[in-house]
Write a protein that binds this DNA or RNA. Structure first.
Lengths: 254, 254
DNA sequence: GAGTGGTCTAGACCACACT
DNA sequence: GTGTGGTCTAGACCACTCC
């Protein structure tokens, strides 16, 4: 592989220079292979030496590519062992995207899970738009409650593209233990690597109030999350209603 | 400077190995100088070559130290020009810590600012604890409103340690244009480099409802922010109440 | 001991900004 | 042109894991 240089001025390339450093190109190639499922979640990818040989670049260049991927949490480095495809199934990073923390005792204990519903539907326009599908396309909706110390804390409404999650049923979800994202990786090869959340304060309506066991009108945190897989493809939309009486949403600003 | 190696087994060092890579030591040294105010906000720090010579290490080692500092936004690299002390005063990063976004039109227009109050007080226990001071120590409280398109959106209550912000008055705050954090840097040498937020949904009480021009009981986002300067020293506590009818709090998960 | 990632070095060359 | 950060290389050695 050779450094891509700036286009010659005489060449017919009116717009994008399409230039990028070697290590970025290497990074893209590795991500392509990740996306293709060449290595499964939790497995080791080839060593830096081997990748360097394979791509015909120095180890330092591969290293810089992998450094960025580690920073983006696409992979995890382990000294002496290798570099591994990141997974939501591991103990340390379970509920990586859940920022809800109890007021007392930093470490949230085990969360109880109660599945309410799992239906095949046609995507309404506002959901289809965010998931980059067409209105009316097949979509799966899952609803569930999370409990902490026996009390309902989170009411989640989850929407998934039907094309990616063929055969997903309530039974399958119930059989699986642990977070959904670990299940999605193992069962459908869909890795959530990044998400955007829109947070608002709303009042509980009659249905959510009943499910969360609070009076109608109670202020709740509405958390709308759009999750992305490789290549910035949106693959999940969910809206959570959080009861923040004894919990809070924790965020770090840098 | 030489690599600090693991302690000899015979030496009397029962606990902490106190080992760290060279580039981490360099990073600490540079941060110490930042903290000491050797270079002011927005100024250039010495070139990588010069720092390497000064510390007696290779340029690559200094580079790695500065890479981390750039990732933590302590410093900003500019190719061809140099490396600069990060500042909240620059146009691009103003309101770096404010995550509130209007529903329509990603780019928040100019925010109107209305100062309500600035008082010297004694810190109550719950504030003193978070700011790592003693209850009863001198503290400054500032209250303000932020407006968007003429409507009040944010009600902020800000608490600062009196010892660090001597002579801060309502008049001084009013004279200054732009975000508080730029003002704090320029006037008091206090750089906010990181913050933690605790977010909940609450109901507007009579006072906040009046100030934000909403009915009592309206769900509001309560955002409690603890900001830190170098060395993880907490130097500001604020609580904001956000009206999220036409705005939302945007967050990115990685 | 062999294999992996982690650190450090020295030097070459490129891209960019100022003057 | 000079000086800055940005990329790439090649090689040495260290730290950790597993056999």
């Amino acid at each position: 592989m050779r450094q891509m240089s700036a286009p010659a001025p005489s060449a017919a390339s009116p717009a994008a220079p399409a230039f990028s450093p070697l290590y970025q190109q290497i990074k893209s190639l590795i991500i392509q292979r990740l996306q293709a499922g060449e290595w499964k979640a939790g497995e080791a990818i080839p060593s830096e030496q081997e990748l360097a040989a394979r791509f015909g670049v120095s180890q330092g260049t591969v290293r810089k590519a992998i450094d960025e991927m580690a920073a983006e949490k696409l992979v995890v480095r382990r000294q002496g062992k290798g570099t591994f495809v990141a997974t939501h199934a591991e103990q340390e990073v379970r509920y990586r995207f859940l920022r809800l923390v109890p007021d007392e005792g930093e470490a949230e204990g085990k969360l109880g899970r109660q599945l309410l519903d799992c239906q095949r539907q046609r995507a309404p326009a506002w959901i289809a738009k965010q998931l980059q599908m067409r209105a009316g396309d097949a979509m799966i909706e899952v609803r569930r409650l999370l409990h902490s110390k026996g009390r309902p804390i989170v009411l989640d409404d989850i929407w998934l593209p039907g094309a990616l999650f063929k055969g997903l049923t309530l039974e399958k979800l119930e059989q699986h233990r642990g977070p959904f994202y670990g299940f999605f990786e193992a069962e459908y090869g869909v890795h959530m690597i990044r998400a955007e959340e829109k947070i608002r304060a709303v009042a509980a309506d009659t249905e959510s109030a009943a499910l969360l066991d609070v009076p109608v009108g109670t202020p709740l945190l509405s958390v709308e999350r759009l999750s992305f897989t490789y290549g910035d493809r949106p693959v999940e939309l969910r809206r959570g209603l959080y009861h923040t009486e004894a919990h809070y949403y924790r965020n770090e600003l840098n």
